[in-house]
Design a protein around this nucleic acid. Structure first.
Lengths: 121, 121
DNA sequence: TCAAGTATGCACCTTTTGGTAAGTATCCGT
DNA sequence: ACGGATACTTACCAAAAGGTGCATACTTGA
C-alpha cells in the first residue's frame, strides 16, 4: 500500500528499507563472518577486531530481531552460545554480493574520497 | 585503548566500503531520483520530501566528492544547477539493484521489525 | 582461593549525524 | 519596491550512534 503522505514515512524504495537492516558500523563485518558458518560469541569478537562487547551484542540483537541472524544458546555447563545466519539472512547476504563486488572493485577510490573528506573537516 | 591494529584499517570487505558511500539518511533516495535523469536542485528537493536544504546540499556534496554525482552549473542568468549520476554512480546504482529487490520483497517484515525496535526503547 | 574465560548488562560520556531556522545574492513578475 | 523563486551557507541544538569500563554469574584450571 503506497502511502505517499508526509505522515507515514515508509521506505521510498527497497534499498532504503534494506539499509535500515544493514547499516551499523559492524553489521557488514558480522554478516561477512557469519556467512562462513555458525560462530560463537567469543570467536566472533576476536574476528571482528576492534568491536566492543556492547556494540557486538547490540548489533547482534538488532540483526536477530530483524530475523537475519539466529542466536543459539546450548544451555550448557560453561556458557555456550553461537550465532548463525537464518535463511532470510542468507538471502540478504546473497543480495549484498554485487555491492561487495562493486566495493572491492573501487576500494581505492572510496578510501581516497573518504580520507579527503575526513581531512577537509 | 582499542587501537592495537598497526595495519592499514581498510575495509574488511567490499560491502563495507560501499556502505561508506551510500549510507546517509537521504542518499538512497537521492540516488533513486537521480537515476531517472539529471535533476535540478529545487526539483530534487521537492522530490525528496522532508529533506532540508542543509541535508540535501550536504549529501549531494558528499556524493559529488565520492564521484557518484555530478553537479552542473549552467552559469545562467537566474541560477540554474542540476545534478546527475556519473558513470561511476550509474555503476553503483546498478550494483544496488539486488538490494532494492530484496528490500522490496521484504519491506513489510523490515517495517515490522523496525517498529518493534522503536517501540521497545 | 584467585585468576581467567564464558556471554552478557549497565552507566556514563564523547562523537557523529541530523534538524531548525535564519541569512546571502541574484533575478523575475506585479 | 516587494514578495517569491533560485541555490545555497551558517550557527546553533537535539538526538542517535558509538566507546570505555565496571559488574554479573557461572565454571574450570592453577
Amino acid at each position: 500500500m503506497a502511502k505517499e503522505n508526509s505522515e507515514n514515512p515508509r521506505f521510498i524504495c527497497g534499498l532504503h528499507a534494506t539499509l535500515h537492516v544493514i547499516s551499523g558500523k559492524w553489521k557488514p563485518l558480522i554478516l561477512f563472518f557469519l556467512n562462513k558458518g555458525p560462530t560463537r560469541y567469543g570467536e566472533l569478537k576476536r574476528s571482528v577486531r576492534g568491536v566492543s562487547d556492547k556494540m557486538l551484542i547490540q548489533q547482534l540483537k538488532e540483526l536477530e530481531s530483524d530475523g537475519i541472524v539466529q542466536r543459539t544458546d546450548y544451555g550448557e555447563i560453561p556458557l555456550r552460545v553461537d550465532y548463525s545466519l537464518t535463511p532470510f539472512g542468507t538471502s540478504l547476504v546473497r543480495a549484498m554480493e554485487p555491492l561487495c563486488g562493486w566495493g572491492e572493485a573501487h576500494e581505492e577510490d572510496i578510501a581516497v574520497a573518504m580520507d579527503r573528506r575526513k581531512a577537509s573537516r
